[in-house]
Design a protein around this nucleic acid. Sequence first.
DNA 1: AAATGGTTTCAGAATTTATTGAAATAATGA
DNA 2: TCATTATTTCAATAAATTCTGAAACCATTT
Lengths: 169, 169
Amino acid sequence: MKFKEGKEHFIQTWGALGSQWGINKTIAQIHALLLVSNEPLSTEDIMEQLAISRGNTNMNIRELIDIGLVDKVFKLGERRDYFVAEKDVWKVARQVAKTRKKRELDPIIRLLEQIENLDVAKDDEEGKRFIKLVHDVKKLALNVEKLVDVLIKSEENWFWDKIFKLMSK
Amino acid sequence: MKFKEGKEHFIQTWGALGSQWGINKTIAQIHALLLVSNEPLSTEDIMEQLAISRGNTNMNIRELIDIGLVDKVFKLGERRDYFVAEKDVWKVARQVAKTRKKRELDPIIRLLEQIENLDVAKDDEEGKRFIKLVHDVKKLALNVEKLVDVLIKSEENWFWDKIFKLMSK
DNA sequence: AAATGGTTTCAGAATTTATTGAAATAATGA
DNA sequence: TCATTATTTCAATAAATTCTGAAACCATTT
């Protein structure tokens, strides 16, 4: 496989991975492109290399900056903005986990807590089963949340080291 | 909050959660409906309660059966099919992890391995950086894969117990 | 064998989501 | 100031996904 071909392939794969996980394909592709680029890229560069419009490029770069995966950088004597991606894959993983936790997990836990506070008569078997279900889901969500918290705070080696010790017992 | 209202809320929330994670909303809603139902439901029941068409119902139930979250059951002396969902939330989590691992993680690891085998000259710095990136991503993916494998094989208590011991050190 | 009750399929419609592109806005500096 | 260049916004459009509903299919009973 040729180098350029490999890059293409990588960008496509990253994009596909993104859509499967509910992330817009273009966001993932821009991220991949910046990941594989050694130099900062301008909006023009990205538009050209991914064959997408200016507006699309701009909005998705902003999203990536919000998520914390991409930074704006300035080149001396240049007017236009350039962008770089965080290259440390572990940091990327942590950052994604952080964003998704806040955006998705936290609101769901709050909702489940609300539902949990149902008034149910003591002899209402159906109601009791429902409350147990909601409770179980909440418990799972809380556990996932805690795990994500560990991940967010950990160093790569520490984290996987501990996880793998888990497996061997 | 009233009981019925709580159920509605739960079904909506489950559906919303699903779409954020790249799962079709209706699939998630059917699953939620079956989760909160103590009795098996027929296609008609589901159509009615979620106000969706027969075709939609049928296709999404099939998907849920494929994933392994829903079973078809028969009622004595009844001709029509009934469906029940796995109620154990931990089993649900493991089943989802299993399906997504096979569908998503495995293919990506294979792709990364292909890309990794690039021919790059020894003095090609850019190429070398790219290969390192791909290698790092693959390593992360392999670690996640291993973690998911532990999860799939574990009992709930064992798993979370070990994970939480992690945190305290 | 034909009527009944139920299930599955799938082309087209509806809906949702992503993208474009042009106009408005901002920043720079001559 | 005003011309130039870059960025942002957003209504319109396109693309992708999901859903419908009617027809085909299948199994059972009379």
